[in-house]
Nucleic acid binder design. Sequence first.
DNA 1: CGACGATACGGAGGTAGCCTCCATATTGTC
DNA 2: GACAATATGGAGGCTACCTCCGTATCGTCG
Lengths: 198, 198
Amino acid sequence: MSTQRSPQAAPERKLRADAVRNRAGILEVAQRHFLAHGIGTSLEAIAKEAGVGAGTLYRHFPTREALLAALLQRRTEEVVASRDRIGQVGDPGEALREWMRAMEDYLSSYTGLPGPLAAAAQERDPDNPLTLPCEQLITATQEYLHAAQQAGVAHAWVRPRDLFLTAVSIAWVRGAGAADDDSIAALRRLDESGYRPA
Amino acid sequence: MSTQRSPQAAPERKLRADAVRNRAGILEVAQRHFLAHGIGTSLEAIAKEAGVGAGTLYRHFPTREALLAALLQRRTEEVVASRDRIGQVGDPGEALREWMRAMEDYLSSYTGLPGPLAAAAQERDPDNPLTLPCEQLITATQEYLHAAQQAGVAHAWVRPRDLFLTAVSIAWVRGAGAADDDSIAALRRLDESGYRPA
DNA sequence: CGACGATACGGAGGTAGCCTCCATATTGTC
DNA sequence: GACAATATGGAGGCTACCTCCGTATCGTCG
């Protein structure tokens, strides 16, 4: 308990020094490449720029999703933590709206991110490294939605998962073809007016 | 005027007999492959199964989008023609709802179709062969939307393009990760309740 | 009918990216 | 300092894209 260790199912033994170094380097380069070229960017290029072989990259992150999940971890914690800030907002309707925007921005972190996340949200495969962030977001959504429903500013038939998918699909439109701002604003308004009773 | 010719800008000279045969064969095989494996399927595999070389395929359809557009042409005409059927529906609100479903199904014809279409809808590049079908769909949407707005069953601030993007994004969710029917139904309900005043 | 120019064909070949495998190198420990 | 455990890297096998050009097929005209 003295050393910070994952409580349940921690298969992580301590890494060798070079492994730690390489892992960090890969993440740093990957972050830049995903930002610049979307999640479809070449993994080999990342390995090369990070100064490691392809094998090393794939040992640390067996799939593109694993790399993505590692990168997303910080962001996920930040966003979920923004609950505290948003929580200060008195009006539950306003809070829900802000939360939706926060999710939308998170989901737009990298071009192409909505695809794998939507898939993960639905398959619920515990082996998919993206399942965890999805569940966290949906859980957070539940809190805001519930409060909004209590206050009568959200329809009772709306489920947290539905709002999550809504945010994902807006983020997808943002990424696919670079929709103009007007269209995105219209989509947001449509969705908001969708879950909110008149 | 006796022979059926494209009225404006027809760069199509008459094809040689073998070219016509090959083109048809490619389309027939491509249809099956796109249906079975989505729009990302291997073009080389299509060429092989159609019994032509890669060069022939690329000569007829220089890009994946061109092939897609050729395949979509029939479907597009069918869907736009379904205006006639839907037009019979008296209630403009009901007609708009039906039209949205028809678009959604059209956009779900092949897995992955929403991506290129969303891109085409926004870039408005006349060289993109998918631009035409997009415009046709948006134009048709405009008719239904306008009628609905006149009847007071759609908000005045909704634009045809917004509804098109809505349909595209639902189709995308359908395709990405095979969302369960409940989620899709919820998204539809959300959207409908979004454009419709209480 | 035959031959000649125009049209179309096909598949080899260069490029790029994925992922695996294992001989070699590095690390940590005793 | 030496040995076992751990980690490395890049060659290599694979799939797919797309282009290029020598060759085959077509249609027409004499």
